[in-house]
Amino acid sequence: MKTELAPRTKVLVYGLMCVLLIPFVFPTWWMVTSSVKPISQIFAFPPDIIPRSFDFTTYGRVFELQPFAQQYWNSAYIAALVTIGTMLFSSMAGYAFARIRFPGANLLFMVVLLGLLIPSEVTIVPLFQMFLSWGMINTHWPLVLVPIFGAPSVFATFVMRQFFIALPVELEEAARVDGLGRFKIFWTIALPLARPALAAVAIFTFLHSWNLYLEPIVFLSSPDRFTLPQALTQFTDAYGGALWNVQLAAASMTALPVLIVFIIAQKQFVEGLAHTGLKG
């Protein structure tokens, strides 16, 4: 499929993509432009596609009204920890389920897969009770531990397992003949080969943690420990009405860095995934 197209087909493809783009791009455009509009114009109808006036002070207000830099750091380091932890433990589990034969492997894999099936709303109350009894309410522990070890990590384990199943076994066989232990084989041979799959897992895990909304609201209570999606709801005027322009400025600042990372990483990410052969 990946061949040079005829010029006419090219124009057609460009045209089709541009039309399809509208519903994808307009909301983002609205978010960014509304962040510099006065509040009374944001919901004016019909909306101004190009703002009539630009008021960039909203971006400064974001940092005045909330400890936004601290919240940014919270989101960033939680997402980074979750990503690193998930990459490690899920690749270990995925490797074991794909490569190592041990009694009960299939049954245990099914048990792990259960985690894929449970919406977080279902278990939030018991989880809250557990973390309360461990004195971890209003700390970042639940937001780190549950994603790394709990339900959200199962997708990563699944992807890693599928990758290792597809990976030729010969390299490892040679190492086994040389008497290398399982962990050594995993760490020095299998894991480096799994870089593409790890890249995919990293992006999905990072985005999941970055966008988490319900859990932070339930577990965290002081503003300096909030994460970004939660902080976005906190920009209000003296009477509890939302300061939409400031909120949208904060929302823009939340989305843009991730988009930039995606632009830089997307080629590797897509090609990485291409080689994982996500096979059922």
Partner: peptide, 26 residues
């Protein structure tokens, strides 16, 4: 090998038990 297998899946299995199975039971 089997021991290694159990060790490899132990963290995730413990997590699933703690954060999925027990809450589901509750």
């Amino acid at each position: 090998d089997a021991a290694a297998g159990y060790l490899f899946i132990a963290p995730q299995l413990a997590g699933i038990t703690l954060f999925v199975l027990i809450p589901l039971g509750l």
